[in-house]
Every structure is written in C-alpha cells, then in structure tokens.
Write a protein that binds this DNA or RNA. Structure first.
Length: 603
DNA sequence: GCCTCCCGCCACGAA
DNA sequence: TTCGTGGCGGGAGGC
C-alpha cells in the first residue's frame, strides 16, 4: 500500500465537533516547556527602562547597565520586565562585584537596593543563560564546557513606541529563533483555549517575529486541525486537543481514501495514477514534472487549503501512523516523502520543508529528534493510540477547568442527548462510587451495576461491524472492571462527556479516592475498548458504511464523512455522522439545569 | 563539506 | 493598486 498516494490534504477541520475534551496534552504542551525551551527562552529578555542604556555585548552575555540616578524615584528606576514569552529572571546575573547568580527575580531586588545603599550610580546586570546551563550540567562532570559551549551571542533590538523606548535582548543563536520555539510560544498563547480567534499580524507582533514565520506555523497547525482559517489574516484557534481527531482522520484516510475528501479541501487535480508511487507523489517531483494536467500541488492551482506545507505535514504524520516503527530516520522520511532524488536544488527545498515541519511537530510534542539504531538522525513518534486517549484525561477537576469547561459541558450534553440510550451503560458519579465500593456499601446493588456495566459493554461492542473482536475486547473490559483495587489515589479523574455541568460541580466537591478510582477504572475500560477498535480499524472498517455516511453528510454538509462504529459513542467524541433524528429523544438523564442551558444555547 | 534551518524575495490572487 | 499569502531557495550557523 502506498501511503502517499493521496495528493490532497485530508480535511480535518470538521472531522468532529469540538467536544469536552479533557486535554492534559494542551496543558502539558502549553505550560511546561522543555529544558531546552526554557534554556532558549533565557536569551530573550526585555527591559522597560527609563534611563539611557549602555550596552556591552561580549562573549559572556550582554551586559546591561543604566544610570541609576540618585534623584529618581524608585518606581521610575530600573524595572526588569519579564513578559510571558521572554526570559525568566532566574537567569539574570548581577555584575556586582563579581558575577553572582541570582536565583530569582525577587532576589535581584535586594542586590539592587544594596547597590543604592552604596551610592553607586549605576545598576548593572548581566543577562545570560549560563545559570540554566549550570543547572543542566550538574552531574555531567563538565559544567564549564557546557556553559562555554552554550553561551550565546546577544544583540539588542530597540523598539520605540509612544515615546517609550524598549530594548529587547535577543540572541543571535539560530535555535533561539527556531520554528520550534516559535510554535511553542504560539501554543502558550492559545494552547488551552478553544475557538479563540486571532490575527496573523497580531500573533507576529506578540511573538516578535515576521508574519512569514507565523504563516509557516499556521499552515502546519491548520493541516492538523489546531487552527482553522476563517478569512484573510483571520484564524480560529481550535486547540491542541484536536490532535487526536486529526490523527484518527489521517489514519482512517488511508483506508477510505478519497471518501474523506470534502469539497472545501479538494477541488481539482487529484488524479491518482494507479501506478503512482511515493516518488511520483513527492512534492518535488510534482513540481518538477511538466505533467499534462496530472496531479499537481503547485501553488495557486489547488484549493487554497491544499498547501504544500499542509499536505506534506499530513503525509509526514501518516508515515508514523502507518509505520510499525516509532523511530524513522530522517533519510528514510526524505526518501518516502520526497522520493529517491538527486541532491539537487529541488529536493533541498523539500528537505527544508521537512525540517520546518519536523520542528513544528516537535514543538507539539508529537515527535522528537533522536537517533536510530545506527546513529542516524531520526524522529520518534511520541504518541500511541492509547496516548491519544490519555490526552483527554484530566488530572483534577480544577476550578479552572470547571470554568473553562462549563460551556462546553452544556453543549456536549446537548450533543449526547442523541445517544441517550447509551447513557445508562455508563457509570455516573454516584453509580461509579457505588460500583467501586461493591463490597462495602451495598453488594447486591453494586453487583447488579457491575453486571449491568459488563452487559452494556458487550451490547455496545456487539453491534459493531466486527463483532468477534470487539466482543472479546468488551469481555476484557469486564474483567478489568473487577480490578478497581490498586488505582493510585492521584489517578486522573476522567469525566465522561455526558457529564453535565452540575456533575462537574459535584465532582469538584466530591473528589474522593473512591470516585477517582472508579472513574479512572471507567476510563481504563474505555481506553482498552477504544484502542482495541483502533488497532483493528483497517480490518473492521467497511466501505459500505462509509458510503452510507456520505449520504448522511450530503444533508449535513459541514459534517465529516468518516463513519464511526457504534462503540465510539461511549467515548466522548460526538459523532457528527450519527443520525441525530433517530437517536435523540430520551432526555431523562439530563439534568434540569442543563436542559435550560441547552434551551438558551439553542435560542 | 555537509547538515540544518532562518530569512526574505517575489509571484499570485483576493480585497 | 495594495497587501495577504505561501512557495521557494540563498546562505548563514553549526558541527
């Protein structure tokens, strides 16, 4: 099977509706930069100063100093401004009298005052990332070398606006301006938010880069569904919790082929030759060939969404999704995506693009740079199918999440009216609690629940296309459902999507060990079931089902075409291809409050 | 010398 | 005509 026959970008923009996705991934990506990232960030600092600057850039970093001004009010004097995407002030060194490592921004101030007491007329500090590297090198046995090697060269960028001078200390080191870092900062800005609109120029300004770089990132993010273009210069941030859906769409797209196409994404020129190979499909060869109306991805010919960078990104990801290896050498990636080519200019262009893509995907923590068995540079795919699901887990039902989720909870509850018949098969908080405590509280009721849950799993999976395998999976789930003991108290609390907002509030107040345990178990069961299905997706997928889905989607043009097995319905992915009219109707499990909320939403 | 990837030119097309 | 967009490749940094 040629993984790369499809020339067109798989449309993932409307693969599923936004749902109540519990996205630790979003938090992880947006809140915890890697060591490298943290280190790189130290190169960028900005100061809001009210004095003339004297800059001295040397190999030890950038020495910054300004007139202290004895008659200047303290509030007007030196202020080190640490903004979101720049240096964390841990890495500021005071140059008095010798280099002294100041562990925090706060700790910097006593030193400043001390200087004043000594009636010195200047305040100087040195910004460097040496501190961070010292930390990193602890235990390596050679900190000096590390520091020396990692020290950066700095330059000052002066900006003036509204009469205020602002100086940004910017490293000249290439890695500090990389797409990877830029993408990470981009994610920091919007990672946790959903449906937030942004403008390219606005982001470029925030990240202090040219628009062109933002387009690079946005095009990649768009191809994996994280952002959606609304209009010129105007995008909507969908959130990194879209990634699992995209991965599923990409994986499925290999089997369903052109069924995935949507009019908005596939317009012309997708003429696939039966004998097409990866070579023929390569981006470069597409450009090279003066083909007579054959598949081309040349700019401005295809649909606007079929951007070369986007298509290449999806093929890059598919490569990992379809490979049995989690580590693929970069040379192999080049060969598979660009074909066997001479190292000519054209192929270099393609390679450059692959580097761009890899850097951005690295920032998304989908891949990481590594080495393969023979030391070649390679990329490792970081997510397993189960990991996709874990993206949806939640560490704790914090207030923040509660607040963020409330609106979506209501909407998802609305969506789940349609699968109401499935709800009794799922454990609700109180039920889960009882279920967990089958031996303590009410054994008979709990046993009934257990049987009920087991039966429901069987029923659900029995209705899938591949009854045998999924039935087996369901039995496994039932077995595991009896193994509630041993769940770590700090285990994540998984919130099924049909949980209402009031449920969430309830969860917040009732975060007992038992509840977390039972919900964790609940999640584990579903993960097993889902991953089992996912694993057998190619075998269980029936084209006839996709065709029927297509017929549904014609009446719902914005829906996706991807058929979804019924067992998905137990997973909090609302199925846009589900026949809403036939399955909606039973609302008895929906809380009254949420019914009202739904009404408001609809109105 | 090769690998990596940042930078910005410039063609295209929408506004 | 302006300007957003994105393909593309030069060339610098790093090893």
């Amino acid at each position: 099977m040629d993984l790369f026959q499809s020339q067109s970008r798989v449309s993932v923009d409307s693969f599923v509706n936004p749902v109540e996705a519990r996205s630790n991934y979003a938090k992880r990506v947006s809140s915890t930069p890697t060591v490298d990232t943290a280190a790189r960030q130290t190169s960028e600092t900005s100061e809001s100063v009210s004095a003339d600057l004297q800059r001295n850039i040397n190999q030890q970093g950038a020495l910054w100093s300004c007139d202290w001004g004895s008659n200047r009010a303290e509030s007007q004097t030196v202020r080190v401004q640490v903004n979101e995407a720049s240096i964390d002030a841990e890495n500021i060194k005071l140059k008095d009298p010798a280099l002294q490592i100041v562990p925090s921004k706060e700790a910097c101030y006593p030193q400043r005052y001390k200087e004043r007491e000594k009636n010195t007329s200047s305040f100087r500090f040195q910004a460097t990332d040496a501190v961070r590297y010292e930390e990193r090198s602890l235990g390596t046995g050679c900190p000096g070398k590390t520091i020396k090697n990692e020290l950066n060269r700095f330059s000052w960028k002066e900006e003036a606006s509204r009469g205020t001078k602002r100086y940004s200390l910017v490293s000249n080191k290439r890695g500090y301006k990389s797409l990877s870092l830029l993408c990470e900062n981009f994610i920091k800005l919007y990672g946790n938010h959903s449906n937030e609109e942004f403008f390219v120029d606005q982001v470029a300004r925030l990240l202090n880069v040219g628009r062109r770089r933002i387009y690079d990132i946005v095009n990649v993010l768009e191809s994996i569904g994280i952002v959606v273009k609304k209009k010129r210069n105007h995008y909507t941030w969908q959130g990194v919790d879209r990634i699992p859906f995209t991965l599923i769409a990409l994986k499925v797209s290999n089997e369903v082929g052109n069924v995935l196409k949507q009019p908005s994404s596939y317009t012309v020129n997708t003429v696939e030759s039966p004998s097409s190979s990866s070579d023929e499909c390569s981006m470069s060869s597409q450009k090279d060939e003066d083909s007579e109306g054959e598949t081309q991805l040349s700019p401005h010919q295809n649909d606007q969404n079929d951007k070369v960078l986007g298509v290449l990104t999806q093929r890059f990801i598919k490569l990992f999704l379809e490979s049995n290896e989690s580590v693929i050498s970069f040379q192999e990636i080049i060969r598979l995506l660009l074909g066997e080519q001479d190292k000519d200019v054209k192929s270099k262009t393609g390679i450059r693009r692959l580097y761009d893509i890899a850097n951005i995907l690295s920032a998304l923590q989908l891949i990481q740079k590594t080495q393969n068995w023979n030391g070649e540079m390679a990329y490792q795919w970081l997510l397993s199918e189960v990991t996709y699901l874990h993206m949806f887990k939640s560490n704790k039902p914090s207030e923040e999440k509660n607040a963020l989720s409330r609106k979506r909870d209501i909407s998802s509850c609305t969506e789940y009216q349609g699968v109401e018949h499935l709800k009794p098969k799922l454990l609700r908080p109180n039920e889960a609690n009882e279920f967990c405590h089958s031996t303590d509280s009410n054994p008979s009721v709990s046993k009934d629940l257990e049987v009920s849950v087991a039966q429901s799993f069987q029923n659900q999976v029995a209705s899938t296309a591949n009854q045998e395998e999924t039935h087996e999976a369901s039995m496994d789930c039932c077995i595991n459902a009896n193994q509630v003991q041993g769940v770590v108290p700090s285990a994540y609390t998984y919130l099924p999507n049909w949980f209402t907002a009031s449920n969430l509030l309830f969860m917040n107040n009732y975060s007992s060990y038992e509840l977390r345990s039972s919900l964790a178990e609940f999640q584990r069961n579903i993960i097993q079931l889902w991953s089992r299905w996912f694993e057998h997706l190619p075998a269980t997928f029936k084209l006839e089902r996709s065709e029927s889905s297509v017929s549904v989607s014609t009446s719902l043009p914005n829906m996706n075409f991807i058929p979804v097995p019924p067992c998905w319905s137990i997973w909090p992915f609302p199925q846009s291809s589900v026949d809403v009219s036939s399955s909606y109707g039973n609302n008895d499990v929906v809380d009254e409050d949420d019914k009202n909320s739904e009404g408001k939403l609809r109105n």
